[in-house]
Design a protein around this nucleic acid. Structure first.
Length: 221
DNA sequence: ATCTACGATTGGTTTACATCA
DNA sequence: CCTGATGTAAACCAATCGTAG
């Protein structure tokens, strides 16, 4: 195993998404979710109970310990500082809480597991949203392709490869190579090679649409 | 009755350390 | 003395159980 570092103080949510440099690109609603937040006061379990004896030797059904507010608060506080405890910390905390070290250990294990679960749920939620936005983007791009196809038939707006001034439509020229690349790309859909990556020397003009202009600055400009 | 939260148990893995040939 | 194999204990995790609210 050994996938996760054992000495972390917080669980980090890092999602790598192709095309995004870092998780800072996440929607703020996702970024602001913090599973390390202490629950609000009314989420605390209010039952108080100090059951010292174990009844696991086949006797009566085990009594469920409910931690007091104060015990939970201390455990949460400790968890925020460190997600794992060394034996000394465990012992100290157990004494402080009047619990057995094993109970503190179990609490930390459960807390880690449940944090991870929440984290996974958040990732899942985020990926769903991401999928939705990609679907939408895909839809828009397809529509743009349709527009470009239409422009090929109708009079295009043209930008000079050496400047940003629009040229008369009649000056549009495209070498045979670019022509075939453009046609192939449109037919095959997205590939790793984009027109932007094509050698500048092969571009003698750029056909633009308003949508493309906003996103793709001309290499010649 | 059903659901959820959560403390506890179980079984498997990893790691550090001790012992021995 | 060094080294590799083996055993053991402790800690962890994932899955699950079972109780209380």
């Amino acid at each position: 195993m050994a996938v996760f570092s054992r000495n972390f103080s917080r669980l980090e949510l890092t999602i790598s998404v192709p095309g995004l440099a870092s998780s800072s690109s996440l929607p703020s609603s996702v970024r602001e979710l913090d599973i390390n937040q202490v629950p609000s006061e009314d989420e605390w379990i209010t039952e108080n109970m100090e059951d010292e004896e174990e009844s696991s030797n086949g006797g009566p059904p085990r009594k469920k310990l409910r931690l007091t507010k104060e015990q939970s608060r201390l455990l949460e506080e400790s968890f925020r500082q460190n997600h794992t405890l060394n034996p000394k910390q465990k012992e100290t905390l157990a004494m402080q809480l009047k619990l057995k070290p094993r109970q503190v250990e179990v609490w930390f294990q459960n807390r880690r597991a449940r944090s991870k679960l929440k984290q996974t749920e958040m990732q899942c939620e985020y990926l769903k949203r991401w999928f939705g936005s990609l679907t939408e983007q895909n839809r828009r791009l397809k529509r743009e392709v349709e527009e470009l196809r239409a422009i090929k038939v109708g009079p295009p707006t043209v930008l000079s490869p050496h400047g940003c001034e629009p040229l008369p439509a009649s000056t549009l020229t495209m070498c045979a190579h670019c022509e075939s690349v453009t046609t192939n790309n449109i037919d095959k859909g997205p590939t790793k090679t984009t027109t932007a990556a094509a050698p500048a020397s092969t571009l003698s003009a750029k056909v633009t649409t308003p949508a493309l202009q906003s996103r793709q600055p001309s290499a010649a400009c």
